[in-house]
C-alpha cells in the first residue's frame, strides 16, 4: 500500500472518530433521535476492509454504520445531515443513524434487524452471479448476528451456490451486553464457517494494516475461486452498545485496557515507525478533520427538514 492510501486510511479513521464524538454531543443535546450506535474503537475494521475493495464491490452492514458510510466515500455532511434527520441526508432523513446507504458509492445500508441483511447480501451475490460479473458483496455483521438463523441460512446458501460474498464478522466481544461465550456455542466465530466448508480466518482488528492485508487476501480468494469466505475481525467498542447503555456487563479496567490499544494510536505509531508520516503531519490531518466535522455540523443544522410531501413519497416505485 502506498503512502497516499495509508494517509487516506488515517484520515478516514480520525474523521469517523471525530464525527461520532460530535454526534454523541448532538445526541445528548436532543438533536439526534432514535438509537445511535457508535463505532469508536472499531474504526480500523471497516477502514482496512473497505480500502481493499474494488469500487464495483458492494458493501452492506448492520446498524453500526456511520464509519462504513465514511469509508465508502459518503461525505461527513451527508452522514451528519442524516443523523439530524434532514432532507440533505443520503436517505433524505427517513432512515436515520441505522439506515445509511448510497448506492452510487456501492454502500447498500445500514440494516437494523440483527442478521436480517445477511440473506439480502446473499441475494446481491445471486444477482451478480446471474448477471455474470465477478463483483463481490462485502457483508459486515457483529458477533451477535452469528447466533440467529439468518446467518446460517445465508452461509449455507452462499457456499452451496458459490456466491461471491465476503462475510465479515466484527467480533467486538459483546452482543449488546452479552459476552460472546455466554451466547455462542463457539467463542471463535470463524469456526462456524467450518461447518459450511467455507474458507475462513481471524485477524486483529485494532491494527488497520493487518485488517487491510487479511481483507485483500480474502477478496482475492473470492474473486479467483468464485467462492465465499468468512473473515473474523477481533475488535472492541470503546463506548456503550448504543447511547443508552448502562455498561453493567464489563469493567472499567477492561475498557481501559482495550483503549490502550486504540487503533488510531497504533496506526500513528506505525506511520511514524515506517517514516511515512511524522506526528506533525498527522496533527495537521487531525486539524483538517476538526474543521470538516465542524462544517458538517453547520451544514446539517442549516439543512431543511424534509417537507410533508416526503411523508407519502417513495413507499411504492409505481403509483
Amino acid at each position: 500500500m502506498d503512502k497516499e492510501n495509508l494517509i487516506q486510511m488515517y484520515y478516514e479513521m480520525v474523521l469517523i472518530r471525530r464525527l461520532e464524538e460530535r454526534g454523541a454531543e448532538l445526541y445528548q443535546q436532543g438533536k439526534i433521535g432514535g438509537f445511535m450506535h457508535l463505532y469508536i474503537g472499531q474504526e480500523a475494521v471497516s477502514t482496512g476492509l473497505i480500502a481493499a475493495r474494488e469500487p464495483r464491490d458492494r458493501v452492506i452492514t448492520a446498524y453500526r454504520d456511520h464509519g462504513v458510510a465514511i469509508n465508502c466515500g459518503i461525505s461527513a455532511n451527508e452522514v451528519m445531515a442524516e443523523l439530524l434527520g434532514k432532507s440533505t441526508g443520503m436517505s433524505k432523513g427517513k432512515g436515520g443513524s441505522m439506515h445509511m446507504a448510497d448506492t452510487s458509492k456501492n454502500m447498500w445500508g445500514g440494516h437494523a434487524i440483527v442478521g436480517g441483511h445477511l440473506p439480502i447480501a446473499a441475494g446481491f451475490a445471486i444477482g451478480d452471479q446471474y448477471a455474470g460479473n465477478d463483483n463481490i458483496t462485502i457483508c459486515m455483521f457483529g458477533d451477535g448476528a452469528t447466533n440467529i438463523g439468518y446467518f446460517h441460512e445465508a452461509l449455507n446458501l452462499a457456499k452451496t451456490w458459490n456466491l461471491r460474498v465476503l462475510w465479515v464478522c466484527e467480533n467486538n466481544q459483546y452482543g449488546m451486553g452479552t459476552a460472546v461465550d455466554r451466547a455462542s456455542a463457539v467463542s471463535e466465530i470463524r469456526q462456524k464457517a467450518e461447518g459450511y466448508g467455507m474458507k475462513n480466518s481471524r485477524v486483529d482488528g485494532m491494527d488497520v494494516v493487518k485488517v487491510h492485508e487479511a481483507a485483500a487476501e480474502a477478496l482475492k480468494y473470492i474473486r479467483t475461486e468464485g467462492k465465499p469466505y468468512l473473515l473474523e475481525i477481533m475488535t472492541y467498542r470503546f463506548r456503550g452498545h448504543s447511547m443508552g447503555d448502562p455498561e453493567r456487563y464489563r469493567t472499567q479496567d477492561e475498557v481501559k485496557k482495550w483503549q490502550e490499544d486504540d487503533p488510531i494510536g497504533i496506526f500513528r505509531a506505525y506511520l511514524a515507525k515506517k517514516k511515512i508520516a511524522l506526528g506533525n503531519d498527522l496533527d495537521g490531518i487531525d486539524a483538517q478533520v476538526e474543521t470538516e466535522v465542524q462544517k458538517a455540523v453547520e451544514f446539517a443544522e442549516a439543512s431543511p427538514e424534509p417537507g410533508m410531501d416526503q411523508l407519502f413519497a417513495d413507499i411504492y416505485a409505481e403509483n
Binding site: R58, G116, G123, F124, G127
Partner: peptide, 12 residues
C-alpha cells in the same frame, strides 16, 4: 434465504 435472497437480487 429464499425471500431475503430474492430481495437482494431484486435490489441489484
Amino acid at each position: 434465504a429464499i425471500i431475503g435472497g430474492a430481495i437482494g437480487a431484486a435490489m441489484v
